[in-house]
Nucleic acid binder design. Structure first.
Lengths: 343, 343
DNA sequence: TTGAAAGCGCTAACAA
DNA sequence: TTGTTAGCGCTTTCAA
């Protein structure tokens, strides 16, 4: 912010007019004479005048910035979401500030406050794995800050949200395994604190019962802590050493899927012949290196776009106008390769 | 930015003092009486007063924000860099605005201008693959905006920079292959527009000549366009169909390495028995799913930290003080697994 | 120890 | 058609 910038005053002085004239000329106000307009715009061009967005923010009480709280940037899915957000935000003239909670409740609370202090016009949130208390969000909503939840939503707060149809994803994944003739389908689920974990599991259960299979609770294991290669492998070990082991696994995430796959290989079993695996892939190249896995593809870019659109709509609603919270539901795709299907 | 915020004026009015007194009390100015101080801080607390950072920015001509230009967020390496940047920036009281160039020169130019207009106090840059003209950076540097380059640097501009010792990485990677007895080592290199591509290649060449091996230009292929699975596979096909094919490949990046590996497998060859592969891994789980690959691990987090430190040091240098550009060089690690080494 | 006033860069109501 | 003035929220010099 160094290197003293050209201001409206500088232009005004050089042209011997007032600052307001320059201001008006620059925004093509109808009152200003064509000559003045021309002189102003030309000099502005010449001096490479750039409006000071901070002064504008102060004046208009609007920062033209949106804040994003994201669990972790390193996941393909989430970084893709950011791309979608930027796509829409930039086009609408907003800057984007991204804060990572790193799946920590404490960090999330700090980030929320920091964004608020930075006077963002609105916030996009995907809650951390740890979060079970939502006061930090509610208090901002109460103050009238527009907020939209994406992916990891928060039912307790009445805001717009963009979600993936996780029930359907769970259902389709499980059905895909059933269709190939697998009978004992296990599920490695995500932490029960996340709504989407429950949705996926419900989809899984519904698919089983719809197709005349029983729900066997011994085949459902929860990955409680953070996603971790070791944990995923242990859970798979546990499943495979059951007296009645599963013949297929529906994994809640990429690591769980890959962990399962590694353990299965170690045991000398083959995918998909001996055991079928379907997993969510937050991770870019799962299907590139692991053609035997069927993966659930999540529409991250689209999700980012939709969330940003909703937020900007709320931000730009006229004062007093009430915006009814909306819910956008996006479908996943099942990426099936020949080599991931059992005949 | 809605929900009218408590201001210094509000506090002043309620307490029957002036705004300047409140301002001073809040920053613990020695002139203010303990009683006033107490009254002010207590009321501020009660009303949940938060200083308006935009007004502060305007007043102090400092936004306490740093801008980051990054080629693509979806790569593990780059998102890790962001983590490092945030780590240092937040601790020092700075916000971070991230812009992705998506490896596009045009986008990069736009991003640079946008950050400047947003009045960031300084910019961290990793140049896009396409960039060959650096005027957009030079003009900001000329205006006195502190700028630090990381990873993909720009020799033409005299700024601080944080780089990876890519020569050493190329050397070590190649040496690792030589040590295992491979004789015809190919190199899939990155675009020659990036300095680091050249460095890696020079390291590769030096390792060969240091160990009595000849440089065979037919074994060196450049991956010109964007990183792409298909291109990587084609290049490998090309290498393997040479009349004198290589017995090892040093790949410039993750995709090239994985692409090479896939083609090798398709041909019925084995890694590392028939052919050795070493690749840079910008990608999180290469070594998890591909234990046969030896990977070069790049210290992204550290790089982000160092770059942010240098930038903040420059930003906070006293007016007029001259900060000599510094270069920080970080070493890579070679991640070698038992299964990636030929006996 | 405190207050008044000016000003950061910009806009907009009001006046001319 | 243009200028004057006030003010967004804050800090700081100068005066009291």
């Amino acid at each position: 912010m160094k290197g003293s910038q050209v201001t409206i005053k500088d232009i005004a002085k050089q042209l011997g007019v007032s600052a307001s004239t320059v201001s008006r000329a620059l925004k093509d106000h109808p009152d200003i004479s064509p000559e003045t307009k021309k002189a102003v715009t030309e000099l502005a061009e010449e001096l490479n005048y750039q409006p000071n967005s901070i002064a504008l923010s102060l004046r208009q009480k609007k920062s033209n910035t949106i804040g994003v709280i994201i669990p972790e940037l390193v996941h393909f899915f989430f970084s893709t979401v950011i791309n979608g957000i930027e796509d829409v935000a930039y086009a609408a003239g907003y800057s984007v500030i991204v804060s990572q909670s790193n799946e920590s409740y404490e960090r999330e609370v700090m980030d929320t406050k920091a964004l608020f202090n930075n006077r963002v016009d609105g916030i996009l949130v995907s809650v951390s794995r740890e979060t079970e208390n939502y006061d930090h969000f509610q208090s901002l909503v109460n103050r009238g800050i527009p907020m939209v939840f994406y992916d990891r939503i928060c039912k307790a707060i009445n805001c717009s949200q963009v979600i993936i149809d996780d029930f359907d994803a769970g259902y389709q994944s499980t059905k895909h395994l059933i269709d190939q003739g697998y009978k004992r389908i296990a599920h490695i689920s995500g932490p029960s604190s996340l709504i989407l974990s429950k949705e996926r599991m419900d989809g899984y259960k519904k698919a089983l019962t719809d197709h005349g299979l029983k729900i066997d609770e011994t085949l459902i294991l929860e990955e409680k802590e953070a996603k971790d290669e070791k944990v995923a492998k242990e859970l798979t070990e546990q499943l495979l050493s059951l007296s009645l082991p599963p013949d297929a696994i529906f994994a809640n995430n990429d690591i769980a899927a890959v962990g399962a796959m590694l353990v299965i290989k170690e045991k000398g079993l083959k995918i998909p012949e001996d055991i079928g695996v379907v997993g969510f892939s937050n991770w870019r190249f799962t299907s590139l290196t692991e053609p035997a896995l069927t993966t659930v593809d999540q529409p991250g870019f689209k999700m980012g776009q939709e969330a940003a659109k909703l937020l900007i709509k709320e931000i730009e609603a006229k004062e007093g106008e009430i915006v009814e919270p909306e819910t956008v539901v996006l479908k996943t795709d099942l990426i099936i390769r020949k080599s991931s299907v059992r005949k």
